[in-house]
Design a protein around this nucleic acid. Structure first.
Lengths: 338, 338
DNA sequence: GAAGCTTGCTGTACCGGTATAGTAAAGTTA
DNA sequence: TAACTTTACTATACCGGTACAGCAAGCTTC
């Protein structure tokens, strides 16, 4: 025990004895407490998990996810907690969400029915859900996806648009062109945004088709735009699940010889850096992704501290604000200048 | 023990008994083996660490680092290993590199004297060093930074350039304009690249100044370019530590009314996506960052397997290839068209 | 100068699993 | 049918620490 104190709680023994013990340890080749043993004895691992749907690669590729994770990392740094990336693995027998030692976890933008989420729930460790369907008994961080989507769709309606396409993504399908549009996506936020868009479009009595792709990525937007604009003219405005898809849509339209926004208006979602980098710059919904990461990490840190104190878990639902950002990719339907 | 087998090695007992045990466990609220206890008993944690110098944020912000980590994640996915991001923390008493349970670690682009690296070494877990000074007894993954830098500097020399500036980064300093250039950077690769540039420049008897910033980032390049080009004309070519700094340099030069490459040529390093996104597109050294991540992860997985088998650790040194990519940011010195 | 702190240093009792060897019963081989 | 193998299950012995209570000695306090 005194040896343990020498390494882990230096204030519990005299500097002199501590020196002797450390010297002896050095001779014996002992390098300090074993992290696994310490985790077992203390009941704390010093790491928190982030569960990301399928592959981890998008976590680094996608600018929104990267910003979110970066903010988490920044919030965690002063606490000394490490960040463990969990995935729903390829193999059946190895499930990181079940097997990796963590003090708590963030569930980010996962499919609802993911077995990995079930495993985390079963472990009874503090959990914070981000961009997931809010559930009682869990701490959740969200934006009002539906209201934000409704607002940007209404903005297009107000510009006179009546024939819409919606470009969205859902890993589970169905994929392809679907009419009428329906909130069939496997991810909660995609469904909510669809609800919001349809709220505004239906109210205005507008026409809309949707095209659903597996992934929210540039090429999915590009192909969707070409598909829609080739076969389904005259669409005058396209609503996209994300900025990165919107960029694909813009370039897809441009590849067909169409001009944005003169021939077709395009809006995205997130206001990621790409929205400003594009030509034309993108009208979109801004959400503060860094603040979301920070809030999620803070909530989890608090939940872990509470669990350690034995106090009952608080399950708060945070809803972060959004803001519409009007840029160049939207305009009045068939402006006179055309 | 039979209970342990029921959860962890189903083939060791009859399906019938297993069902009974699982049912009993369910009634009792037992959710399966505790990861920490399992890690202690098995001597394996199911996670590998990646040590990144200071804050973790650059890991997500920087496209090169993100691609590297993405490749690691992709390589790890089928093995079921989780990826734990380690940092050299803010607090003295909490050192993730010492306290977090991992089976092995990747050391990526860290300052040599980082105490976190020492901790990892002391733990005697398998380690793979990436972009670090190759040392006997460790597995290392590198490119030939010096040769690549020499080649691109030589390319500029061959275009007739004789007055150079070098824009580089070193967290530890010294910072500011330094002449003559010297490999004083705290990171190994920055020193090697400096060696390479100077190899070519000295051979040609060229003039050069260097400006060293703390971080390799856009603003550092931007400010450096304005500083250099304002005070130290006539520099005709600028060598940069990274593509992202090079973009800053290009925009800094442009902000002064200079044209790239007509008035000044600029080269970068890495061939990250930004090199193609820029105007003009950037002449740079391509390295296959994804391959580097894949190789690093594979080497670590092998090393962990070997350590488990008790076989002696192999310490191989891999050197990945590079390739010069000529784009628009470089040209003959004072071309006739100017 | 007796009661009441500190300070410094131990025992004891877990934390929650798994590897390994061992045993009894059932199945196989010659 | 005796000897050998397999299957199914179990007892023992760790894995490597930490929390907590206990205990003696030196210091206050009134």
């Amino acid at each position: 025990m005194t040896v343990s104190n020498a390494f882990s709680r230096p204030d519990q023994l005299s500097p002199d004895l501590r020196r002797q013990i450390l010297a002896a340890a050095d001779v014996l080749g002992y390098v300090g407490p074993d992290p696994s043993a310490r985790a077992l004895a203390r009941g704390a691992t010093g790491a928190i998990g982030v569960l990301l749907t399928d592959s981890l690669a998008p976590a680094f590729t996608d600018e929104v996810a990267a910003e979110f994770l970066g903010a988490i990392a920044a919030r965690l740094a002063p606490t000394g907690l490490a960040l463990t990336l969990l995935t729903s693995s390829g193999r059946d027998d190895i499930i990181p969400a079940r097997d990796v030692a963590i003090d708590g976890a963030l569930v980010y933008s996962c499919e609802v029915d993911s077995p990995a989420v079930d495993w985390l729930r079963r472990r009874r460790i503090p959990l914070v859900f981000v961009d997931q369907e809010p559930a009682v008994g869990s701490t959740c961080i969200n934006i009002d996806d539906r209201a934000a989507a409704r607002a940007i769709a209404q903005y297009l309606v107000d510009l006179g648009h009546r024939r819409f396409a919606i470009v969205t993504a859902s890993l589970a399908g169905p994929h392809g062109i679907l009419a009428p549009p329906a909130p069939t996506a496997s991810s909660y936020i995609a469904r909510q945004r669809m609800h919001g868009w349809l709220d505004a479009l239906n109210l205005a009595g507008s026409d809309a088709v949707m095209i659903q792709q597996p992934y929210s990525e540039f090429s999915a937007g590009f192909d969707s735009a070409r598909h829609i604009l080739d076969t389904l003219n005259p669409v005058t405005a396209i609503l996209c699940l994300s900025d990165v898809m919107a960029r694909g849509v813009v370039e897809g339209a441009q590849s067909l010889g169409l001009r944005v926004p003169d021939d077709v208006s395009v809006v995205g979602f997130d206001d990621s850096p790409v929205a400003r980098r594009m030509h034309p710059t993108l009208t979109t919904v801004r959400q503060n992704t860094a603040a979301k990461g920070d809030a999620a990490a803070s909530a989890l840190i608090d939940a872990i501290a509470q669990a350690r104190d034995g106090s009952a878990p608080t399950d708060e639902h945070y809803v972060l604000t959004t803001e519409m950002v009007i840029r160049e990719s939207t305009g009045q339907v068939r402006p006179s200048g055309h």
